[in-house]
């Protein structure tokens, strides 16, 4: 028994050690990883996913942003499938591998199109919020995806209000140019996550109705395209699954290709 007490303590000590070690990569002390799954090939368009701090680990000071954080959900398969469709279906020059854009780096400005998921968890320092604000107003385009219900929306908007305090969010109409720039998308429906395969539900939490929304600049250009109560990333990622309905993946691909084409023409 005397020997067993220290043995019981070992897992606890190990857990504490690992936890403390992991915190060294949180907040401002994280180590920058390269998340590409191949060498950089000079391209016109780089599929760029936004890397940000997740707030659940506290308000930014120790926000978790290493690989495996909220920002990286469905990465890299979802992004990769989308990139394959982009290469196949458009003339957009995009041979390079996937790209992750760090919100703390000014190289954000080298990629005028970025994709962010789980944005209900994002938190920004003032510097990060200003960088994203400048990025959008100078001509950058942000597509956000994969957040559901009232609480997620409020958390998303809390971050968005830090970036663009006074810009209204509006619902996009079928006639909006963004739905006709490449494909004429006249019918849209809720695009569920892969949870649909097991449950048959297209919604999560209380996000029953899909929200196709946007934030525009002074001239009406869409700067932020919002896909709320949906999960397009899963629709790309599970496009090759026999159980996941094709109609969801098909719409998800057409939507994102239109968004990218819109970003490169407006």
């Amino acid at each position: 028994m005397k020997l067993s007490r220290p043995l019981y303590a070992l897992p606890v000590l190990f857990s504490l050690t690992v936890g403390l070690y992991a915190l060294q990569f949180g907040g401002r002390r994280y180590t920058r990883y390269s998340y590409s799954d191949g060498p950089t090939v000079p391209s016109e368009f780089y599929w760029s996913r936004l890397q940000y701090n997740s707030g659940y680990a506290s308000g930014g000071s120790f926000g978790f942003r290493a690989y495996g954080g909220s920002w990286s959900r469905d990465f890299p398969k979802a992004d990769n499938d989308c990139l394959i469709a982009l290469r196949r279906l458009t003339r957009i020059h995009s041979p390079s591998a996937l790209n992750v854009v760090d919100l703390d780096s000014d190289h954000l400005f080298d990629f005028p199109w970025i994709y962010a998921v789980d944005v209900n968890t994002w938190t920004f320092t003032d510097e990060e919020a200003k960088r994203l604000h400048d990025y959008l107003l100078k001509g950058g385009f942000l597509m956000v995806d994969d957040f559901h219900g009232t609480d997620d929306w409020q958390h998303f908007m809390a971050g968005m209000r830090q970036v663009l305090p006074d810009r209204p969010v509006e619902d996009l109409r079928d006639q909006d140019e963004i739905y006709h720039v490449l494909y004429d998308i006249n019918e849209k429906f809720q695009i569920p996550s892969e949870v649909y395969v097991n449950t048959g539900r297209t919604y999560e939490k209380d996000g029953y109705v899909p929200k196709w929304r946007a934030i525009r600049n002074d001239r009406g250009r869409i700067m932020v395209a919002i896909c709320a109560n949906m999960h397009l990333g899963d629709a790309w990622e599970w496009a090759d699954s026999p159980e996941y309905p094709e109609k969801f993946s098909g719409l998800a691909f057409r939507i994102v290709l239109n968004y990218i084409t819109y970003a490169m023409t407006h």
Partner: peptide, 12 residues
Amino acid sequence: GEPRWEYKFIRQ
């Protein structure tokens, strides 16, 4: 001949 950023920013 292709979608590219220069086109967008010239128009902007």
